[in-house]
Simulated assay, not measured.
Amino acid sequence: MELFSLSVFAFTIPAVIFAGISKGGFGSGVAFASASILALVLDPGIALGLMLPLLMLIDASSLPAYWRKWDWPSAKVLLLGGIPGTVIGALFYAWANPDAIRLIIGVVALLFVAWQAAQKFGLIRLGRTRFGRRTGLIAGLVLGFTSFVSHAGGPAAAVYLLGQGLAKTRYQATTVLIFWAVNLFKSGFYAGMGIFTKETLLMDLALAPFAVLGTWLGIKAHHKMPESLFFAVTYVALTCTGLKLIYDVLT
C-alpha cells in the first residue's frame, strides 16, 4: 500500500493518537496496539520504522510530567535485562521474514489479552508478593526482545511492575523512564539495519503533532478517565487485530 495515501493516514492518525494516550497516561502496556494496527495495512518493517520515532517523541513529551516520580530500583533491573533482550531482538529481526514478525505481533496481542483476562477472573494475582531481581531480569529480557520486534515491551514491564505493588503515578513514571531509554537504545539498531527510511521519516514529521496531542490527552486522562473504560476498548481492538494478523499469516 502507498505510504502517503488517505487510507494509510486513516489508520496512522488514530493509531498515533492512541499510542500517545496509552504511553502518556496508562503505563505503555497497550501502546503496541498501534504497531499491531499498522501491521494490518503496511509491511511490518515499515510499521515498526514509522512508529519508533513517534514513540520516542511521546516518551520525550511525557517524561517531564513524571520526572523523578519513578521507582529507580525497579527501572534499573528491567533496563539491565532489556539491553541484551534488545540485541537478541535485533538478531531475530535480521533473520526473520515479514510473516514471522506479523505472527509474533499477533500472538503477543492475544497473549496480552489472555493475561489480562486471567487477572480479571482471579486466576493470576499480582501485587501480593514482590518479584525478585531474577524475575526482573527475565522480564527485562522479554521486554527488550518484544520491544524490538513489535514495540510490545509494555506487557513484560507491566507484569513485573504490577508485581511490585507500585502506586499508579509511580508505576506510570517508571514505564515512561524505561521506554524512553529502551527506545533510544534500539533506535541505533533500527538506523543501522535500514528499518528507518526517508519515506517513514517524512511521514513521522506529518504525524508528530498527533503524537504530541495524544500524549497531552493521556497525561490529562491519567487523572480523570476510568482505566477500565480505556482498557476495555483496547482489549477488544487487540483481540481483533491479533486474530487478523495470525489469519493473514496462516492463509
Rank of each mutant, 00 (worst) to 15 (best):
P209H: 09
G29P: 11
A232K: 15
S34D: 00
V182H: 07
L48T: 00
L78R: 01
M203H: 04
L245K: 02
F112T: 13
L238R: 12
S147D: 07
L161G: 03
I13M: 05
R68L: 15
I37Q: 02
L110E: 12
L40K: 07
S34F: 00
A167R: 05
V77G: 01
R68V: 09
K23N: 13
T174V: 11
V108F: 10
Y66L: 11
G140N: 00
K198T: 12
A75F: 06
L38Y: 10
S7N: 12
T241K: 12
R125F: 04
A10N: 09
D59W: 10
S150L: 04
S61R: 08
V233H: 05
I138T: 00
K168Y: 00
G81K: 01
G165F: 04
F145Y: 10
G81Y: 01
V233L: 14
F196L: 02
A114D: 13
V176A: 14
S7W: 15
R170V: 04
G45R: 15
L123H: 11
L63R: 10
A65I: 12
G25Q: 08
G153Y: 02
I195K: 02
L57V: 14
L54S: 08
M56E: 05
F179R: 08
L80P: 01
A173P: 11
L205R: 12
G127I: 01
Y66H: 13
S147W: 05
